[in-house]
């Protein structure tokens, strides 16, 4: 009986640990961020979305410096997305269209800081056609080295 209880307990703990990994959904973080851009709250709530390293490079007093906080607004409508996780780091690729229906892909690198998945680097690819869409999760620097040899 003890053995059975301990087996059930072990299985439950194992299942829970898997479930916890599966629960990390970077796309949800991306959606929250795009919502904040749309609602014009991204600057005020920047620390909920971007790492301190990322924010170091953004001068909040200079309007011309704010684009890195608002890059996601290039995607008007999302068509697909992929994510991959490696420990405390994750990468998300989001395909979509601009408001004029031109295709666009955004690659976002996330870093886990104080239990939050925060944007650490972004790469916006204004692709020429739909064939250039991301077909898997790639990190921004991987894409850059692929398209710019």
């Amino acid at each position: 009986m003890k053995l059975l209880v301990s087996l059930i307990l072990s299985f439950t703990l194992f299942a829970c640990s898997i479930l916890k990994v599966e629960q990390t959904d970077l796309y949800k973080e991306y959606v929250k961020q795009t919502q904040a851009v749309k609602n014009n709250t991204i600057v005020a709530n920047r620390k909920l979305f971007f790492t301190s390293e990322y924010l170091k490079e953004v001068d909040l007093t200079d309007e011309k410096s704010l684009l890195p906080l608002k890059l996601s607004k290039y995607i008007h409508q999302v068509s697909s997305h992929y994510q991959k996780l490696e420990g405390q780091k994750g990468c998300l690729s989001v395909n979509g269209i601009e408001i004029n229906e031109d295709p666009v892909t955004i690659y976002v690198e996330y870093k886990k800081e104080q239990d939050l998945w925060l944007v650490d680097y972004m790469f916006l690819h204004l692709v020429e056609n739909y064939e250039d869409y991301a077909k898997e999760a790639l990190c921004p620097r991987e894409v850059e080295s692929m398209i710019f040899k």
Binding site: E53, Y54, E57, V58, L67, P68, L71, Y121, M122, F123, L124, H125, L126, V127, E128, P140, E144, I147, F148
Partner: peptide, 15 residues
């Protein structure tokens, strides 16, 4: 192919 570096992010455009 052009890459515009805006410090913590980059924008690529081709044509």
């Amino acid at each position: 192919t052009a890459i515009i570096d805006i410090k913590v992010a980059k924008i690529a455009v081709s044509g």
